[in-house]
Structures are given as C-alpha cells and as structure tokens.
C-alpha cells in the first residue's frame, strides 16, 4: 500500500455539532421575542438603546482584543449576548450614553479584564447594571409606562418615543413604598403591558425564549425552575397579612425574575457546573431575591441575588462534587 498521510489522533474521532458560537447564537435567538415585546411596548426608543448597547459591546470586545494582541473572537456572539442583556436591564428611557458606558464596562472591566470569555466571575451584564445603578440611580429607575394602547395599535412600532414619565413599578407598589398607583392586572403583567426595564417587561416573550433554550438544551431546568419556585413559595408564605397571604404570581411575573432566572442566573461562567450546585444556586437566588424584595432597601432583588450567588458559585461547586459512579458508601 502506498504511503498514505493518515491523521493519527486520540479517540473520540467524532464530535457533536455543538459549538460555542452556536450556543451563543441560540441565546440571541431566544432573546428576540423579548426584543420584539420591548419594541411593541416601549417603541423605537427601546430598539435604539438595544442597538447602541450591542454595538458598544461588540466594538469594545474587538478593540480590547486587538489592543491586547489576542485573537478577536467577536464572531462567537458572546459580546452580542452581553450587550443585549445589558440593554434588557436598562430603563427604556435610558440615554444613549448610559448604554454605551454600561456595555463598555461589562465587556472591558467585567469580562476582558479577567481574561475574556469564561474567566469573569460575575455576570458582565448584571455587574454593569449594578455599576450604573450606583452611579446614576435616578436615570436607572426612570420607568416608563408603555404606550396606553400599544397592544391594540395596528402599527405598534410607529408609537412615538415614550416620554420619560416616572411611574411606579408593580414591585414598588407591592412593597408599599410608592402609594401612587394600583397593581396592574396579571394579564397585563404576563403580556408585558407594564413599566419596567427594557427586557423584563413581557413574561410571555421571555418564556417563549426560555422554552427554546430548554428545548435546545442550552440551559437545563435546575437553576431557573428552582429559583422561580423558591420565590413563589416564599412570597406566598411570607405574605403581608400573615402566613400564606402573599401574591406569588405577581412576584413571579413582575420585575426581572423571569429574565434573571432563565437568562442571567443560568450564565455558564458564573454558575456551578454540578447538578446539585445548580439547585443550590437556584435556591440561594430565590431566597435572597425574596429577602430583598420583602425586607430590603430596594424594590427589586434579582440582580443583587444573582451577583451574590455568582460570587458563591465556586464554593458551592467545590462542596457539590457528584458522587462518582460506583462510589462505596462511607468510603468517600
């Protein structure tokens, strides 16, 4: 036989079709319904903020990698995901520079400073949100009421830019810190016809995206389901008028819980890889969220609880290494 040039490498000799960019693209796809919902309820203004945020994230990533003479990996879609998620955490009234600063901070400081994809220990979008909230608290909490007839208008995208009217979010109302206002209907909350950040408004849109991610096995049920269930059960038990008088559905549907549970707490880099660790992550996020919402100084606790659990994740992981196959009891 003639001398063939054969490739010799160690098994396995076949690989799955999955890829890093494919997974990140799936996350982007999963966020598209929420982008559409944002456009419907908050108008072009929201799309503008989202666009600025994504563009800044991608450019920052490219620039930093270029300056640090590292391979430019913007085609892995991960910067797009960060930009999108950051925009989702901004109020629709956010000025363009807020999105630029937030996005640049998320990529430059939180992600690249720690070595790039998968070395950051905090979720970049959430850390940037916390930074913006601390620096520009008023800008970050100027919630807009969606255009009154947004849902029924024939061309919702033609809605004029929403005015920066400050309105009370349902959570603030639930907590009683803002007396003005009345709780929106559950249906409005589910569809998204309520005030809030750009991305958290429509539970329905987010759940469609979440279902897609679960179906594509990009995320698994553990963190989001345990997180949401914990919030539901605890807010029901710890009701304002004694045990079991809470309104768990409001707590689940409002604020950034669904966005946080499915799209941010599940961030690979900042959550445990062990199955038990993921359950603990969900539980921890749920407990902290409820404590902040019911007893803390802020109306919303999703981002802080996830950031806190991000910090705890390596420790959780260390204590939840699975029992190996065939491990004999008592001889760990």
């Amino acid at each position: 036989m003639e001398n063939e040039q054969l490739v010799v490498s160690s098994s396995p000799h076949v690989r799955s079709e999955s890829s890093v960019s494919g997974i990140m693209l799936d996350v982007v796809i999963a966020l598209v319904p929420a982008v559409i919902a944002a456009a419907i309820f908050f108008g072009m203004r929201a799309l503008f903020v989202i666009g600025i945020s994504i563009a800044t994230a991608v450019l920052t990533e490219a620039l930093i990698q270029y300056l640090m003479k590292k391979p430019v990996t913007i085609n892995d879609w991960s910067a797009v995901v960060t930009g999108l998620l950051l925009a989702f955490n901004l109020p629709p009234t956010a000025p363009w520079w807020l999105a630029v600063i937030g996005s640049a901070f998320a990529i430059a400081i939180v992600k690249q400073l720690f070595g790039g994809l998968s070395y950051n220990f905090l979720n970049p979008a959430l850390a940037a949100r916390a930074f913006l909230l601390a620096s520009w608290p008023v800008r970050m909490t100027a919630w807009a009421q969606p255009g009154v007839d947004a849902v029924t208008t024939a061309t919702p995208l033609a809605q004029p830019g929403v005015d920066a009217v400050t309105t009370a979010t349902p959570l603030a109302i639930l907590k009683g810190t803002e007396s003005a206002g009345q709780l929106p209907s559950l249906m409005d909350m589910f569809i998204g016809n309520i005030g809030g950040t750009i991305g958290e408004t429509s539970a329905l849109a987010l759940l469609i995206g979440a279902a897609y991610l679960l179906y594509k096995r990009v995320i698994n049920w553990r963190i989001p389901f345990v997180y949401i269930a914990t919030v539901g059960v605890l807010t029901w038990i710890l009701g304002p008028d004694g045990a079991f008088t809470g309104q768990p559905l409001y707590h689940i549907l409002c604020g950034g819980l669904i966005l946080g549970a499915f799209f941010m707490a599940t961030d690979y880099v900042t959550s445990p890889v062990t199955p038990l660790g993921q359950i603990i992550m969900g539980l921890g996020c749920g407990i902290i969220t409820v404590v902040i919402r019911l007893y803390g100084g802020y109306p919303e606790g999703v981002s802080y609880s996830i950031l806190f659990m991000n910090v705890a994740a390596p420790l959780i992981e260390r204590y939840t290494v699975p029992k190996k196959f065939g491990e004999v009891k008592g001889r760990a």
Binding site: V7, S118, T274, V321, P322, K324, F325
Partner: peptide, 24 residues
Amino acid sequence: AQAPQVQVCIRCARCVEACPADLL
C-alpha cells in the same frame, strides 16, 4: 478527520451531564 479548533471552556457543563461515570 479534520481536527476541530479548540476554544476556551465556557463551563456549559455538557461534559458533566454526559459523563456516565459521574465525573467533572
């Protein structure tokens, strides 16, 4: 037979879910 390009681990835990020996 082409060797795929190796990237950094994104900690997706797919290897953990797939391992029949329950390893990390």
